[in-house]
């Protein structure tokens, strides 16, 4: 069973539909037991970091997420679901995140006239660390993915970056550490190449 964590932010139906292309047992749930009993877990999300943390706490989902990650089950974070894995975000002052990965979430600034949010299709450049995982199998270096965000992650351990993207600066657009995979872009909105990442995750 693949569980998509529902914490009340954003529509999860299209995420579920994307996974259902490759796997029949996909549920959307906010029940801690469902998360703990899953083979794979997806943490999606759009919207504000601080509110997302509040909603996760309200539903008692913080500990179950940490536990399932510790159990070694494949875990996929998407967009805000990537950012939430880190220690803290600049969004809304300084807000503590799930603290599963070391590092901070920063706001884009001084972009020389580039627009914020970073919205649209941009290239992901795979790093040589991408080779140690199958998550980016058959994704060519320089493939376009769909982004919508004003904040980006700055991991303490540079070795977890499996891809980077240029927008005023070069930021980490995808990470992998052990069983944790997470992307700043939206695979479920990135047409066939995005769906390939979802398939790679399902096939693990």
């Amino acid at each position: 069973m693949i569980t998509i964590v529902d914490y009340g932010m954003g529509n999860l139906r299209s995420v579920q539909k994307a996974f259902e292309l490759y796997y029949s047992k996909v549920r959307i749930s906010s029940i801690p037991e469902d998360i703990l009993s899953s083979d794979k877990v997806v943490l999606p999300g759009v919207g504000a970091f601080s509110r997302a943390m509040e909603e996760l706490k309200k539903r008692s989902l913080v500990d179950p997420i940490a536990e399932i990650v510790k159990k070694g089950k494949p875990f996929l974070g998407i967009c805000l679901g990537l950012q939430l894995l880190f220690e803290e975000s600049e969004e809304g002052g300084r807000v503590a995140g799930l603290n599963i990965l070391k590092g901070k979430v920063r706001r884009f600034k001084d972009l020389n006239g580039l627009k914020i949010p970073h919205m649209g299709w941009n290239k992901v450049r795979t790093t040589h660390y991408a080779r140690r995982t199958t998550i980016l199998n058959n994704i060519a270096d320089g493939s376009y993915m769909y982004f919508v965000h004003s904040y980006y992650v700055e991991p303490e351990d540079k070795n977890i970056a499996v891809c980077r993207t240029d927008y005023g600066l070069s930021f980490t657009s995808g990470i992998q550490r052990d069983n944790i995979y997470a992307f700043q872009f939206h695979p479920e909105k990135s047409q066939c190449l995005g769906l390939r990442i979802i398939k790679n995750f399902v096939d693990m």
Binding site: N11, R13, S14, K17, A18, Y146, V148, H186, E188, K189, S190, Q191, G194, L195
Partner: peptide, 11 residues
């Protein structure tokens, strides 16, 4: 909208 979002994986 629901039917579109279920078949088209783009914004």
């Amino acid at each position: 909208v629901r039917r579109t979002a279920e078949t088209v994986f783009m914004p």
